[in-house]
Design a protein around this nucleic acid. Sequence first.
DNA 1: GTCTATAGAGAGATAGAC
DNA 2: GTCTATCTCTCTATAGAC
Lengths: 198, 198
Amino acid sequence: MGSDTKTALLDLAEYTVRSRGFDGFSYADLANAFGIRKASIHYHFPTKANLSEALIERYQTRFQCRLTDIASANATAGARLRALVALYREALHEGQTVCLCVAFSSSRESLSETVISRLGMFRSMVLQWITAVFELGQTDNTILALHQPKQEAHATLAMLEGAHIAARAEQDITLFDAATFILNARCLVHTSSGHSTL
Amino acid sequence: MGSDTKTALLDLAEYTVRSRGFDGFSYADLANAFGIRKASIHYHFPTKANLSEALIERYQTRFQCRLTDIASANATAGARLRALVALYREALHEGQTVCLCVAFSSSRESLSETVISRLGMFRSMVLQWITAVFELGQTDNTILALHQPKQEAHATLAMLEGAHIAARAEQDITLFDAATFILNARCLVHTSSGHSTL
DNA sequence: GTCTATAGAGAGATAGAC
DNA sequence: GTCTATCTCTCTATAGAC
C-alpha cells in the first residue's frame, strides 16, 4: 500500500457500505480489493464497529465542510438549495451509492450505540443547515411558495434521501432528477425585484 | 403451528426484513421465533431467494388493494393523498419498520433478478397511482399549488420513503410527521368553491 | 504493517428418518 | 411437515512469526 493505507481502506469501505449496506460488506471484500489479508485490516480497524465509527465521523466532517463551502460560494437561498440538490446528486454516483446516512439507517440493528448517536447528530446538522437556508429564503425571496422553514427542511431532507433510494433501487439517476425537479424549479438563483412570486 | 405455517412465516419474515434489512435476518431467526428448526423453514421456502420473491409478490398485491380501497373510500384528490400519507405512517409501526420497497432497495446486491424486477414494478404501480391522484387534484382543486402531476408524484413518493428512513433512523415517528406536514397541509379533504388557493 | 494459521460462530442448504 | 445430522462456506476476530 501507499503512504496512507488507512485512508484508502476508509475510502473503499465507505463506497462499499453505501452500495451494499453495512451487513452486505465484509473485511474479506476489502482485503481482496487491496490484495492484502483480512488480518492486516484488523490492524488498522480492530473491529467492524471501530471501522463504522471512523466512517461516520469522517463523513460528518466532510459533509459539514461541503455545506459550509456551499454557503460561501452561493449568496442566495435559491442558489444554496440548488447546490445542495447537486451535492446529493453527485453523492449518488450514477445510482450506485446512497448517502452513508441512508445506508446506516437501513442497518440500524447491526450498529453500535456510538454510530447510532452520530447518525442522529448528522441528521440534526443537515436539518439545521437546510432550515437556515429556508429562513434566508424568506428574506431574499429566492425560493418560491415558502412559508414554514423548519417543516420545509424536514420535507426536503426526506425527499433527497428518498430520491437516493429511488434512484438506487433501479440504478437510474433520472429518477433522482424526477423526484427533485419541482424543488429545483422553486429555486431562483439570483435575487430579482424582491417580491414573492406566489 | 396452526393451519397456515407458510403465512405465519411470511408475516414474521416481512416484519424482520423491514426492520433489519434483507441481509440482517436469517432462517435461524425465524426458526427460533416459532420454536421449530431451520430445516422446516426450508420445506416451505427452499431458498432465501424463494422467500424474498414470495414476500415482494404478496406485498405488491396487498399494497395495490390498499390503494384501490383508498380511492373507493375517498372522493377527492386531497382526501386520497392524506389517506396515502396515513397508510405510510401506519406502515412505519412507530419507527420499527420501513416499507418493504425501501428495505429491499437498500440490499439490492443480495437480491435475485426476479425480486429486483418486481421492485421496479412495485414503484411504477405506486407512482402511477399517485400521478392519477394529482391529475384528479388539478380537476377538483383539493390539492394546493399543484402544477405538474407526474413530477409531484415522483417527489411525493421520494418524500414518503425518505420520511420512513428518517423516522426509522431515530425510531421516532414524529420525524415522519414533520417531513409530511407540508404535504398534508396542501390537501383539502372536501371540495369547496373550486378556486385555487395560491 | 503485513503475514500464516486458526478459532468459533453463524450463514444457507441438503439428506434421510419419522 | 417437522425432525436430526451434517455439509460447506463465510463471517469477525485473535495469536504470534517476520
